[in-house]
Design a protein around this nucleic acid. Structure first.
Lengths: 197, 197, 197, 197
DNA sequence: AATGAATGAGGTTTCATTCAT
DNA sequence: TATGAATGAAACCTCATTCAT
């Protein structure tokens, strides 16, 4: 008796998720280019062949990871703008971003690595572009928040905010043990809030 | 009549420099992993075989590029501390860093890419480490400047300064056309200088 | 109530026939080696697994197709020799062969392709051999017809007849639109019949 | 001291020829699809990698073989039309074709196999097409010969000639030991020549 | 110093076949 | 009978590196 389509769907989803989890883990550790499909499959406890049942190839697999990441970022912004005051919104964004990098510095580092990939690398340039686009998108939404704060130049202010945030995240992800994240956050958030009281 | 050893050494260095220039150029465009030794050799106008005469391999070649980069950064700091006042020193550091990223955003992007390489990538982890170490070293030297400015917490202040700087550089290198570099620089430098007048 | 064994057998044969029809169709279009078992199964509207219920594998499936083809050819010969005169027998053979290639040029092409398969191809050499054997067998039966026509060298004459026939079939199957099949048939049949009036 | 470009060219040509010879040999024996690149390389006494230095892949390798074959056929026709009389021209064509199949029946079989490849096989359809085109081209040149013989329908007569020839070649290549090639040739050539005296 | 032919390890990918359900 | 997830062997192909010249 064959499995029902629903049962198959469930099995497929479990396997796909298992593969994605294994992939992000080993990509973060060894890097995308230095990771072989076999590495991913072994890490996921499945065969090479099965991986190709679910993903067209390494590139395709990476794409899905990146899309998930994009979605995560987008959702943070959506949550943020639901908050009542612009100040809380900015705080939420900063808090979330920094908590994220604190909890998974290697993941942030990995996606930043991807984002900085040379543009003409045939293999990952699309992923790089996707992450960059999301970064820009985020900055535009932020600009609206600064608008509500009556900033003289909301777009500039938003970029300033983003650069400050990413600067901290960048350095923390490179030196989780050498960077006093909480203190930097405190200084950074304050310096922006002070201006708009 | 045979060349003197010194003359040989000089010629050898010119050749090595030519190769490095070709390598950085093609690495920046296609990425380290997606660039073959043949690509580099062709770009340098020499044969694959000859390249191995000057560099032990692809990895070795990258190492030398990174070491050069490190040296550049180090020299900026050395120049900076020769200036008379702490304020000028900070300004020099910021100016130089931002001018550098403005002139060669793709180079900055490339080295950042390298720096964010996953730690256990057998091939480039050493390079990544070297650039990271230099970043930290720079921050320590900066801390001394903030000390002279009677900062309450010089190290923290130095890190804050670095994160602000790198945040701008990061975003500019990703979007040279969408980021108003000069304005961000102005805001950033001012916000730091204001505190210490 | 369970089906009788005969009923089961009948159903099984219907399924097998459905698979064979799907297989020959896709083999003709894409070629045996370039067709995957999945292609066949999809074309037959069943699952991969079920196909293995009916055929031991891809090779086995091909074998059955070839055996069917052999049987077809054999039956044509059996029908032919039932006819009253040798002349009619030859005409029947030629008519049938040429009608067959006219109706399904791609099928003839496919079996010819199979027949010309290199001898040591582990996968299809048996099939190739089977078709070749049948070709020879046919020529022997034909020789008997020429004997009845008092041919000086019946075997040679039979071969001559076969080569003429296969030559037309070969070229027509390669260029169904560029070969005037009827005219060639007329010329060919006539040239043989003339000799034996 | 590096080799001169000419020397390199010579070495390359030797290697390419060695590979082609090995390829045709093993393709004929095992079949194109059942032959791996490694098989070819081993047969040529070189490494897999080197083969890719000279040919883009298996398909590309096959293409060169087919082009050589095409050239051979074309040259026969060119030689033929240099002969003084149409009768000699036809005789030359028949002689040459049959001598060729007699000397290398497996080669003829192989190219015929290729020619009959299903049209939509992504891998070899181009080769198949090339050989077919040449066949048609040959028939057109022949038609001119028949024109000079004042044939009523030169094109039809040419096709008839071609089918007769290919029919013999087909059957001989399948059964080199069972087919009296010389006798068939005699009969076939005579039957065409008789008509035009 | 200089070349590029040659190697081979290691990666990607396909697919016939098996098997739990 | 029926399914398709899962396997793994075997193919394809790339490229860092070596080496004869």
């Amino acid at each position: 008796m064959p499995r029902t389509p629903e049962e198959n769907e469930r099995i497929r989803n479990i396997s796909k998720e298992k593969i994605r989890a294994a992939a992000i883990d080993v990509f973060i550790t060894k890097g995308f280019h230095s990771t072989s499909i076999e590495d991913v499959a072994k890490n996921a406890g499945i065969s090479k062949g099965l991986l190709y049942n679910y993903y067209k190839g390494k590139k395709d697999l990476l794409m899905e990871l990146v899309e998930n990441r994009k979605e995560e970022i987008r959702q943070v912004m959506e949550e943020a703008i639901k908050l009542p005051s612009p100040k809380e919104q900015l705080q939420y964004i900063a808090e979330h971003a920094l908590r994220n990098v604190k909890e998974q510095p290697r993941a942030y580092r990995f996606y930043l690595h991807l984002q900085t990939h040379p543009e003409e690398d045939q293999i990952v340039s699309v992923c790089s572009q996707m992450l960059n686009d999301e970064m820009i998108r985020q900055s535009r939404v932020q600009a609206e928040i600064f608008q509500k704060l009556n900033a003289v130049n909301p777009q500039l202010e938003s970029l300033h905010f983003s650069t400050a945030l990413h600067g901290i995240m960048l350095m923390y992800s490179m030196h989780p043990n050498g960077i006093p994240l909480e203190q930097l956050k405190y200084e950074m958030v304050n310096s922006f809030i002070e201006r708009y009281i």
